[in-house]
């Protein structure tokens, strides 16, 4: 029944959370790295201070971080920390905690990705449906080749090209960052337009590529749907063309698109990370990029874990609302 279905889906979500946490915990240990020692040696090399006592310092730090305890104790306390969304301190920005850094970056990514994904899904699906519809204007057929070409290009490459055209050649939009240097984050109209201007190029590079993908998928589904008997019957009944288009064809063809959306979220996010890096957009991707540069393991792990959990949750929500979108599917096991 309904409750059982939701519970099962939630179980899958918890499984993802646990797997992501375990991956974060065990992978670095499998490779036999010694993060504390490596960091200390690096700092000693950078700062040029006394080389002696590294072993003692390593021991002391390991005791502090609990690294001298048996593995299973470490694992349990790690899981406990993760359950409270506590990922320790950032090594590179020391007094700040990883969770703070993520909390600062997350809204930027959520806003950029949420808007672009929804927009491209809506525009793409509608466009794809029109492309398959015989009553659509003729010029629409010319949209197909550019859509195909665009959708095969990675987000960030289009971002590079757009930056060159719209920010460098014709300086319409800012090239870099989330807001102008010197602008102070505040809830003002000026700051809001500034942020919007900076978000436009990254958003455009995601939307243009993603829209093509959704349009292609939708077009395929529309063609199949339009071949169904109930559509022929609806036409034979003399229903108006818009009714047949919206209620009979589009309504049915959109369902597999939603499934595809749930599956594509991971890919979209992977692509968006690189877009943020190219544009220096202050979201999760840039945070991750800086952490990789500075070898900040705790931040890398925290970001990866947070993103996997956030996506797992979104998938869970989509799973739960799917039967509501498609009345043919009940909550019972299919």
């Amino acid at each position: 029944m309904q409750a059982a279905y939701i519970a099962r889906r939630f179980g899958v979500f918890l499984l993802i959370v646990w797997l992501a946490a375990s991956l974060n915990f065990f992978l670095p240990r499998l490779s036999g790295q010694d993060p504390v020692r490596t960091k200390l040696l690096q700092q000693a090399a950078l700062g040029g201070y006394v080389q002696g006592g590294i072993d003692e310092m390593t021991k002391e730090y390991e005791r502090r971080f609990g690294l001298d305890k048996p593995l299973w104790r470490q694992y349990l306390s790690y899981l406990d920390g993760v359950a409270h969304l506590d990922f320790n301190y950032s090594i590179a920005n020391y007094p700040r905690r990883v969770s703070e850094l993520i909390a600062d970056a997350l809204p930027w990514t959520l806003a950029l990705l949420g808007t672009t994904t929804l927009l491209s899904f809506a525009i793409g699906s509608f466009l794809g449906a029109l492309l398959a519809w015989p009553g659509a204007p003729r010029w629409m057929r010319w949209l197909m080749p550019p859509l195909w070409a665009l959708h095969a290009i990675p987000f960030f490459l289009l971002g590079l090209i757009l930056t060159y055209l719209l920010a460098f050649q014709i300086p319409l939009l800012p090239i870099f960052g989330g807001y102008s240097a010197g602008a102070f984050p505040a809830l003002s109209w000026r700051f809001a337009t500034d942020v919007l201007q900076h978000a436009l190029l990254p958003a455009l590079s995601i939307i243009l590529v993603a829209t093509g993908g959704w349009a292609l998928g939708m077009r395929g589904m529309m063609v199949t749907t339009m071949g169904e008997d109930y559509v022929t019957f609806a036409e034979a009944k003399g229903l108006k063309a818009p009714t047949v288009f919206l209620r009979y064809c589009l309504r049915n063809a959109i369902l597999p698109q939603v499934t595809a959306l749930a599956l594509a979220l991971g890919q979209i996010l992977s692509g968006a990370v690189l877009v943020e890096v190219i544009f220096g957009y202050p979201g999760i991707g840039t945070l991750l990029f800086q952490a990789i540069r500075e070898n900040d393991h705790f931040v890398i792990q925290g970001v990866v874990f947070t993103v996997i959990v956030a996506l797992g949750f979104t998938t869970f929500v989509l799973d739960v609302i799917y039967p509501w979108l498609d009345p043919r599917i009940s909550y019972r096991r299919a």
């Binding site: 974060n24 490779s31 790295q33 749930a262 991971g266 992977s270 991750l288 990866v304 797992g312």
Partner: peptide, 16 residues
């Protein structure tokens, strides 16, 4: 459903 690039990052970072 997991973003592949991020898992690959964890793997690549973990290697010596």
């Amino acid at each position: 459903t997991v973003p592949g690039l991020l898992v690959l990052i964890i793997i690549a970072v973990s290697l010596k």
